[in-house]
């Protein structure tokens, strides 16, 4: 058995750990304009990133967008997941495929769709001006709202399908029992469905939060040039600035913040579901 597992384990190590180790090593190097990179073992890239108010702001924006997108995805996703999970089996597979539909187009293509919708001459403004509701186009593209809407469209399917799998496992009769004992729909949701779905809520939020923290195409295309999240900032350092050590340090900081918050969040949720 161990002999069989070994190649697979090595492959996983090779695929997952090696690039990370490389990246970490690079983050300890020193940038050099002529040579690009000097071998070194220095924490200066990390210190510089942490000390720079600009990157603190970028990180704050990233966290803000990721947290609000995750929360909104949960708020939108829960009813949808519930509806999907409780659907007659005949339609369920069709609805599941429809849920996955948005993922069939790439992020860039989808963002283009949003741009056509939200732009100054986009469909929404055209409709609003056409009906005489507004005279001047509303600025919608290149706003934080546009980024969150764009990200939501990407992550909502993940949230919905994760939640639906867990809700499906909650027997309908348990909800009926709550109703039978006098619980209205809201109470039944709060006291029975939500606590039982908590593992799914935790899993969905972690998955979506990680996706949001690492969003690239959507913030670049819908947030506009002034809007910065961490993933585009990392890209800027690697590709436009050719400062690999600093880019690697930023990438690691993003990874650490994501990891810490993910562990923290799921520990709290897990604790809640146990104590309840």
């Amino acid at each position: 058995m161990a002999a069989l597992l070994l190649p697979a384990t090595l492959l996983v190590l090779g695929l997952l750990v090696a690039p990370m180790a490389m990246l970490f090593r690079i983050s300890l190097n020193r940038y050099d304009a002529a040579q690009m990179m000097q071998e070194a073992l220095t924490a200066e890239n990390y210190l510089r990133a942490l000390a720079d108010p600009y990157y603190r702001e970028v990180m704050a924006t990233t966290l803000g967008v990721a947290l609000s997108s995750t929360l909104l995805a949960l708020l939108i996703g829960f009813p949808a997941a519930y509806w999907l999970a409780r659907m007659e089996s005949r339609w369920k597979s069709l609805a599941t495929i429809l849920t996955l539909f948005p993922l069939l187009v790439g992020n860039v293509v989808r963002a283009a769709g949003w741009m056509a919708l939200l732009g100054r001459d986009g469909a929404i403004n055209a409709a609003l001006i056409g009906t005489g509701l507004i005279a001047e186009p509303l600025p919608m593209l290149y706003t934080t709202g546009a980024v969150i809407a764009g990200i939501l469209a990407v992550v909502a399917p993940y949230m919905i399908l994760t939640l639906a799998a867990v809700i499906e496992a909650i027997p309908r009769s348990v909800e009926e029992a709550a109703a039978n004992l006098g619980a209205g729909p809201l109470t039944s949701f709060r006291r029975v469905v939500l606590p039982l779905a908590l593992p799914g809520v935790a899993a969905g939020c972690v998955l979506v939060f990680i996706l949001c923290m690492n969003a690239y195409a959507t913030p670049v295309l819908l947030g506009g040039p002034q809007f910065k999240m961490m993933a585009p900032a990392v890209y800027d350092q690697f590709v436009r600035g050719t400062n690999w050590p600093f880019g690697a340090a930023l990438a690691f900081l993003l990874l650490i913040v994501t990891l810490v918050l993910t562990i923290l969040g799921s520990t709290i949720l897990a604790g809640r579901s146990r104590s309840r």
């Binding site: 940038y31 002529a34 600009y54 436009r240 600035g241 400062n243």
Partner: peptide, 17 residues
């Protein structure tokens, strides 16, 4: 080449914000 890191920093951090 010598200044591009500083130049993009200026562009991102000061001009664009």
């Amino acid at each position: 080449a010598k200044n591009q890191v500083a130049l993009i920093d200026f562009w991102n951090k000061e001009f664009k914000r």
